[in-house]
Simulated assay, not measured.
Amino acid sequence: MTETDSVVEKILRTYDTITVVGASAAPEKAAHRVPAHMQAHGWRIVPVNPRADTILGEPVFRTLADVPEQVGLVDVFRPSGQTPDIARQAVAAGASALWLQLGIASAEARAIAQDAGLLYVEDRCLIIEQRRLGLSAPTP
């Protein structure tokens, strides 16, 4: 088991809510399918998208700063070049974990997150990891 595998398992066993930056209302997009899958397995989804009002039956917030509750796990569906700014926003929002989805990676975002003490995963898919570990959301 790699260090990343350990962090992945810790995140999936710890967080019952996933704040999804770049969540999509379009069912054909991974940014919709992945949160929908996680929601179906018990995780609460808090969508962040500047152009939608409701995604997966949940109210959408324009930015991480607009989320009115404590943010824990931030899952990112945005291009790698945007992730350093998202990492800074996650730190400012008090997040404790940052997850960049499959195909998304950034040395700068990783440094920002790790310097702030966040758990960090990049280039991994929540669905793949959830299935591999056979987990459902932890009970709050």
Rank of each mutant, 00 (worst) to 15 (best):
T2M: 05
T2H: 06
E3R: 13
T4C: 08
K10A: 10
L12M: 07
T14Q: 09
Y15W: 02
T17R: 06
I18A: 07
T19M: 05
A23K: 00
S24W: 03
A25H: 11
P27D: 13
A30M: 14
A31V: 10
P35I: 04
V46I: 15
V46G: 04
N49M: 03
A52T: 11
D53P: 06
T54D: 11
L56R: 02
E58V: 14
P59Q: 08
D66W: 08
Q70E: 13
V71W: 07
V71G: 05
V71I: 15
G72V: 11
D75W: 06
V76R: 02
P79R: 14
S80P: 08
S80C: 10
G81N: 10
Q82E: 15
T83P: 05
P84T: 09
R88S: 13
R88F: 06
A90V: 03
A95V: 02
S96W: 01
S96V: 10
S96M: 05
W99H: 03
Q101D: 02
G103M: 02
A107Y: 06
E108G: 05
E108Y: 06
A109E: 01
A111G: 11
I112H: 03
A113V: 05
Q114R: 13
D115N: 15
A116E: 00
Y120S: 05
Y120E: 01
E122S: 03
R124A: 02
C125G: 04
I128P: 07
I128D: 14
Q130E: 14
R132M: 12
L133I: 06
L133K: 05
G134H: 00
G134L: 04
L135D: 06
A137T: 08
T139K: 09
P140S: 12
